[in-house]
Design a protein around this nucleic acid. Structure first.
Length: 423
DNA sequence: TCTGGGGTCCTAGGACCC
DNA sequence: TCTGGGGTCCTAGGACCC
């Protein structure tokens, strides 16, 4: 039986979330900005039609925004995560196999289901009705093709939001592929697209019929697999369970430049605290922590410095205090005065399951148990009373370095104080 | 003035072992 | 004078994704 993977992708996801609670945004050009209101991370159709690209710095758009009345909102991840959960839960009811691929995308295994287009249309209508988010669906025998089908469903109006490759002939598919640029393929990034074009491979069709050996020799196994998937061969399966993270990153740009060591220390403690929470959430321990700070790479006129250091831990831990102690010693090693730092970050590495904690010659079981119950209490309080209710003193209270979020909407669905009001 | 954050996988090269 | 071969593990860097 022919496999059938669906890729369901929410349209302009962050903008769509905001529109749910602010109907005035409907039909108007809207963008959502990254942390610090830095760059554009989501665009409404009206903004895409103005030619605004993804990832453009907001300050470069100010003029255009004024001319066309573009509304810019700070990103509200609490809201988006909650809406995402609702969409994903609803989708899970449509088939036994689901892989949640990102906050706004999900792969489904629809193999064996009859009349797929009709099925997908019903699913799409139901998500719109129950959650209010518009989605498009691509269906194909491989995940790479399903991504491409989704792209077609979004771009070509005649498909009405659902494009099923399984229902098309080889000739129809090839005609379609001849008109799509190779860079649109999942896994073909800017670099590879440039190199492919130099080799005379410009369209999806040309990549599909490229000799496997040549692709393998020039680009390696990843691209070879992409070509096989374009030919309808299922190489990449559905990942239904998310494995624990192998590294946990917490990094932020500052709201303003930071030069003092004590400000960096506060930030590093705050980020390490957050990373440690994520670590305990997935019941893991970290064997090391990497710390980095950096000046603004875009400001070439200013002196640049972007040191990083990796601190191995004496033994794997999930204790915020131990992780912070290591992070701070790393920070003090790499810190140099006289630079305007723009960003800092920590990365937890060497992650193992908490159940696999190694025994050591020097272990202190009582101290270990104390640490575990202290961290558990900390997490419980912060979960119940709001994150940051209890924190290490070193994180500071003023937080002059914290990021800017000029125009953030309310957390309509997750905070009692911020619920939507009906008049 | 103002340019995000958090991940994965693959590959090459070095250290080390027998 | 002549200086092997094969394997594993780790790390850094690159490319990619959303």
């Amino acid at each position: 039986m022919q496999r059938a993977f669906a890729l369901v992708d929410c349209n302009n996801f962050y903008v769509s979330c905001e529109r749910l609670f602010q109907p005035r945004l409907e039909g108007r050009p809207v963008v959502i900005l990254s942390n610090n209101d830095g760059i554009v991370v989501s665009r409404s159709q009206e903004v895409k039609d103005l030619g605004v690209r993804m990832g453009v710095p907001w300050f470069q758009l100010k003029d255009l925004a004024k001319r066309h009345g573009i509304i810019a909102l700070s990103s509200n991840y609490t809201l988006y995560a909650d809406i995402s959960n609702r969409v994903m839960r609803l989708l899970s009811q449509y088939c036994p196999g689901q892989e949640i691929y990102s906050i706004d995308e999900s792969f489904l295994d629809l193999t064996g289901i009859a009349d797929l287009t009709c099925y997908a249309q019903a699913m799409r209508a139901n998500i719109k009705r129950c959650v209010g988010i518009p989605v498009c669906v691509g269906i194909a025998p491989s995940k790479t093709l399903a991504k491409l089908a989704n792209h077609v469903a979004k771009k070509q109006k005649q498909f009405h939001g659902v494009c099923e490759f399984n229902a098309m002939t080889a000739r129809e598919l090839d005609n379609l592929f001849a008109k799509i640029e190779v860079g649109e393929v999942w896994g073909v990034g800017r670099r590879s697209a440039e190199r492919l074009q130099q080799m005379g491979i410009n369209t999806v069709l040309e990549l599909k019929y490229s000799p496997a050996k040549r692709v393998r020799a020039e680009f390696g196994v990843v691209m070879e697999r992409i070509v096989a998937e374009l030919n309808g061969e299922t190489c990449i399966g559905l990942d239904e369970i998310t494995p624990p993270r192998q590294q946990i990153i917490c990094s932020r740009s500052f709201g303003l430049y930071v030069s003092l060591l004590e400000d960096l220390e506060q930030a590093v403690i705050a980020y390490t605290t957050r990373a440690a929470e994520k670590l305990r959430d997935q019941q893991s321990l970290a064997g090391g922590i990497q710390v980095y700070i950096r000046t603004n790479p875009h400001k070439e006129s200013e002196p640049q410095y972007q040191p990083t250091t990796l601190l191995p831990l004496f033994e794997p831990t999930d204790d915020t205090r131990l992780l912070c102690r290591a992070a701070l010693s790393g920070l003090r090693q790499i810190y140099r005065s006289g630079y305007a730092y723009q960003k800092a970050g920590v990365i937890l590495t060497g992650i193992i399951p908490a159940s696999a904690r190694p025994r050591t010659l020097f272990e202190d079981t009582a101290a270990q148990q104390k640490s575990t119950s202290l961290m558990a209490a900390l997490d419980r309080i912060n979960r119940r009373m709001g994150s940051g209710t209890m924190q290490l003193l070193g994180e500071g209270v003023r937080k002059g370095w914290a990021m800017r979020r000029g125009s953030m909407s309310q957390r309509y669905t997750t905070e009692w104080d911020e619920l939507a009001v009906a008049r």
